[in-house]
Simulated scan of single mutants.
Amino acid sequence: MKIGIIGYGAMAQSLCRLLAVHAPQIQVVKVLIRSGSKAQTKPLSLGAEFAFTTEQFLAADLDMVVECAGHAALKQVGPDVLKSGVDLLIASVGAMADAPTEQALIESALQSGAKLRIPAGAVGGLDVLGAAKLAGIDTVIYSSRKHPKAWRGTPAEKLVDLEHLTKPTTFFVGDARHAAMTFPQNANVAAVVALASIGFDRTQVTLTADPSATGNTHGIHAKGNFGEVTLTISGKTLADNPKTSMLAPLSLVRSLMNLEQTVVVG
């Protein structure tokens, strides 16, 4: 399988390293970045090349594109990828909380027959939520607890004093749509949970900064006709990006590997 990657930050670089170890048969051939980006100085996988325009990127013979560049890049490039007929696996799922972006991506996929693929990311239990939705889900609450440094550079800085917290402090309670759009670097998991269950407007979210946190903790609690499920995942973060769980790029690798597996679980 030949893939292209949009973006080359911590997530994309981790993805390339993991593919080399776990799925060397999946070849990265193109990486799309902005001209003049510092990422251009970073080493690429063997056989890969940088592309600086969408046209140059899509001119390659790609079987799959993986987005690792953030909401703005997904909004700008995602529809063109799907219109070209190439499946798109996205890390910045929170961008779909913006209704026009969601519509543009879906319509582009329908136009060409390409698939918009959403990985589990840093959480599990999406298979349970998807099955439970068929029986009926009444409520879904997603919670995220991270160290204050993971919330730096976000609107959380205006809501709490991140530098001087002495105890866990919840600074956002609301629906998944507002969470994903307000905290685009931190709330992609909220978007994934919402899409897997009862939607952006009904899924409730709490975001917490905890000075004692040693990683990112994600919680899901859902109730409905199916019964009740509670799930907690405490994951380590990427060394060079505390906002992102280590499981996020691993989930991308698993999604790609599943496309080539004879037996697919989950």
Rank of each mutant, 00 (worst) to 15 (best):
V173M: 14
M1I: 09
I233K: 01
I90F: 14
A194G: 07
S45G: 06
L126H: 08
V21F: 04
H147G: 01
R34Q: 12
M96K: 13
T203S: 13
F172R: 09
P211N: 03
G70K: 08
Q76G: 02
A73Q: 13
N241M: 09
A191W: 05
A48G: 13
L89I: 11
F183D: 04
D175H: 13
E107Q: 08
A51F: 13
N186V: 03
A135G: 05
K149T: 14
Q27Y: 01
K2N: 15
K158A: 15
T206R: 15
H178C: 10
R152F: 12
D98F: 07
A69R: 07
E102D: 04
L195Y: 07
Q56S: 15
I33F: 05
L259F: 07
S197H: 05
I6Q: 09
S212H: 15
L256P: 00
M181L: 15
D201S: 13
F57K: 02
G124V: 02
V140L: 07
V229P: 06
V123S: 01
M64D: 02
Q27W: 01
G9F: 12
R34C: 05
K83M: 11
Q40T: 11
T230S: 14
Y142W: 07
L165W: 01
L44P: 02
P242L: 07
Y8F: 15
T54E: 14
M11I: 15
W151N: 04
L46N: 08
A95F: 14
P184A: 00
A120N: 02
S197I: 06
V123K: 00
A248E: 09
E107N: 03
A39M: 11
S108R: 06
M11N: 06
G219N: 14
T182D: 04
I141M: 07
G266L: 04
S144P: 04
A196N: 10
G94S: 14
K158D: 13
L252Q: 02
E67W: 05
A60V: 07
S35W: 12
V128S: 00
P211K: 00
V66D: 08
A97L: 05
K146H: 11
L19C: 07
N186T: 01
R17I: 06
E102G: 00
